[in-house]
């Protein structure tokens, strides 16, 4: 006999963990952000928005925010473009495709600490592969300290993050592409549609919902980046590669300013919720194409 309480029993262990380590922490983050919580003594009094004001007034906060915005826009853009190109390519049938697909996914599988170290070694100034190759092919004037010069450091870290992160988008897009019925393309070919027309009028509308999902997910992941920057530059030189994740970490665990770090966390959460609402709004509006009636969940 299936009874209701059995359903509750099955989800009980997971739910206890969820409440203990997700719901409660979120609530705690919120309370820390509006009190003057100190680690020592556990005392806390309500201070309203004072922590938020203090964070905004920090001389590096605006710089971090600017870095984060550029970081999110540029990584998501390039990861998406690259993922789309590779997915379109892997959607063509050829011998050895399964193997190439696994190879394309490998940068995503190796630990982020390892990919951080990999690129750190490649971008190393004196003995790194990048500079050695530039010298070898006669482009010696481009040899430079990739990670210790503020502008270049940002681009180098971006490059590494794109390499590591794009396969996830690629595999999601690819599965969307594989679901498009072949006959739509055949019909379009008979009508004499060019490849770019087929892409625009068949491919894109068919996978529109997946596109929206992977872009929202990737925006959230990018906003949340920590590992690769921590390993490559630690946020340096001079804060050039510091984004919100590192900022929270440093504020909370180097400066031990928990309440201000919590205030930044709350801002970050608020941003994620806004993005999600935007996502829901976009996917709800776009269900009417003739090719597609798919319900998308997270």
């Amino acid at each position: 006999m299936k009874t209701r309480y059995q359903g509750y029993l099955f989800i009980l262990p997971a739910t206890i963990l969820l409440v203990l380590l997700m719901v409660y922490p979120m609530w705690k983050t919120f309370t820390y952000s509006v009190t003057d919580f100190k680690l020592i003594g556990n005392s806390s009094t309500f201070v309203g928005l004072q922590n938020f004001k203090a964070v905004m007034a920090r001389y590096d906060f605006l710089n971090v925010l600017k870095n984060t915005l550029i970081w999110v826009v540029v990584t998501v853009f390039f990861q998406f473009a690259l993922a789309m190109i590779v997915a379109l390519f892997l959607n063509v049938k050829f011998r050895g495709r399964a193997v190439v697909q696994i190879i394309a996914l490998i940068p995503w599988t190796i630990p982020s600490v390892v990919s951080g170290n990999t690129w750190k070694w490649i971008f190393q100034t004196d003995f790194g592969l990048m500079n050695a190759l530039l010298r070898q092919i006669g482009l010696g004037e481009f040899v430079q300290p990739w990670l210790s010069q503020p502008k270049m450091a940002f681009f180098s870290v971006l490059f590494a993050a794109i390499w590591q992160g794009y396969p996830f988008l690629m595999i999601m897009l690819l599965s969307g592409l594989k679901g498009i019925p072949e006959d739509q393309y055949e019909a379009a070919m008979i009508d004499g549609a060019s490849p770019s027309q087929r892409f625009r009028y068949i491919t894109v509308p068919n996978i529109k919902n997946i596109i929206v999902i992977v872009i929202t997910l990737q925006i959230i992941y990018a906003w949340n980046t920590f590992d690769i920057i921590f390993v490559l530059t630690g946020g340096g030189p001079g804060g050039a590669t510091e984004i919100l994740g590192l900022f929270i970490y440093k504020l909370g665990f180097s400066a031990f300013n928990f309440s201000e770090a919590a205030a930044v966390s709350v801002l970050l959460l608020a941003f994620v919720i806004v993005i999600l609402m935007l996502r829901n709004f976009l996917t709800k509006k776009e269900t009417g194409t003739i090719y597609e009636k798919k319900k998308i969940t997270l």
């Binding site: 359903g7 739910t15 969820l18 820390y32 929270i248 919590a262 997270l298």
Partner: peptide, 30 residues
């Protein structure tokens, strides 16, 4: 199983997937 609050619980689990990890490190620590 169909039980009351099923979709709410399921929604909570799915939502927690997109919570930024960096914003949870403080409460985890404490």
């Amino acid at each position: 199983y169909k039980f009351r609050g099923r979709s709410v619980f399921l929604g909570m689990f799915l939502f927690s997937r997109i919570l930024p990890r960096v914003s949870l490190i403080l409460p985890f620590f404490i």
